[in-house]
Computed example of a mutant assay.
Amino acid sequence: MNTSPPLLQIDRLTRHRAGRMAVQDLCLSLGRGEVLGLLGVNGAGKSTTLSMIAGAMRPDSGTIRLNGQDFVEHPGLARTMVGWLPERAPLWQELTVLEHLQAHGRLRNLNGSVLRQACETIVQRLELSDIAPRLAGLLSQGQRQRLGLGCALLHKPALLVLDEPANALDPVQVAALRQLIRDEAAAGTTVILSTHLLNEVTAVCTRVAILHQGQLRYAGPVEDAGAQALEQQFFDIAMHGRSVAA
C-alpha cells in the first residue's frame, strides 16, 4: 500500500473573476505519476483552476500545496516545479524557437551545459529541429502549441499542467501528445489535463474530475467510471448540474 503524501493537495480553493464566483471550495489531491482529466463545459472554471495551480493566478482563499509546501509561502515553487501550457501558448514573437526555449530555461534557473542539453532534448523529443531557427511569430498554431509544450517540459517539472493541449494539433500529433503524457506519468510526473473531450480523458487519464459552475461535482478513477458511465456523468452534470458522489 502506497502511504506517501500526495504531490499536489488543494483545499477549499476559491476565486472570483469579473464579479462572479469562478471556482468555489475546490478540493483535490494527486499522487506522483497520476494523470487527472479535468472536464467541464466552457465557463465551468477549468482554466481558472489551472491558472491557480500553475501559480499564474492567486486564489482568493484556500491552499495549494506542492510536495507539502504552500504556494503562497513559497512563490518560487511554480517556476521550478510546475510546467504550464495555457490554452494559448504565450510566445515572444521576435525570438526563434531555439531562443525561446533558451529564454524559458533561464527563467527556470537552467544555465550553461544543463540548459543546452535540455534544449537539445526538447527539440528532438517534440520534433522541433526543422523549425528551430524560425521566429515564433511565424509559426502555425500547431507549431506554436508544440513549442509551448516544449517550454513546459524543459525543466523536467514534477507537475505538468496542460490546458486544452491538443488544440490545433493534427491526428498524428495528438497521438504523439498522448504517448508523451503516458511517458511523463510513467517517469513519475503528475499531469493535469484540462479538456472538454471525453475520449482524451479515457485515452490517457487515471483519474477524472468534473467541474460545473466552479464546483467539483464528480471525482474518481477513470477505470471505475468506464467510458459510457463517464459520458453519462458528464452529460448529467453539464445539463442539469447534478451532483454525483465520488
Rank of each mutant, 00 (worst) to 15 (best):
G55S: 14
A166S: 13
V172S: 15
R79G: 08
A158H: 00
L8I: 07
V222S: 02
M81D: 07
L98N: 10
L26Y: 09
M81G: 02
A229S: 10
A229C: 11
L8Y: 08
N167F: 00
D236K: 10
Q117F: 00
A103W: 11
T202Y: 00
V174G: 02
Q173I: 06
V41H: 15
A89H: 12
I210L: 10
T195K: 00
Q141W: 07
R79M: 09
P59H: 12
L180Y: 04
G150Y: 09
Q213H: 13
R242Y: 13
F235K: 05
L85S: 12
D183A: 13
E231I: 03
N67F: 04
R108F: 04
V82L: 04
P90V: 03
S61N: 13
L153F: 03
M1P: 08
A246F: 01
L154H: 03
H196Q: 13
V191M: 06
E99A: 13
E231G: 13
A238D: 02
S47D: 05
G83E: 05
R12D: 12
H16S: 13
G241Y: 12
A132C: 01
D163W: 09
P133F: 14
Y218E: 01
Q215S: 15
S29T: 15
A246D: 10
G241R: 15
P59D: 14
H16W: 13
I181L: 03
T80D: 12
T189R: 07
R134L: 03
P5N: 01
S129Q: 15
L139R: 07
R12Y: 00
H196L: 10
H155A: 12
S29W: 01
H155M: 10
N2P: 15
S113G: 02
Q179P: 03
Q143I: 10
G33T: 03
A227N: 02
L50R: 05
Q228E: 15
I122M: 12
R207M: 02
Q69P: 05
T14D: 11
G76W: 06
R12C: 07
L30K: 07
W84K: 01
I192N: 05
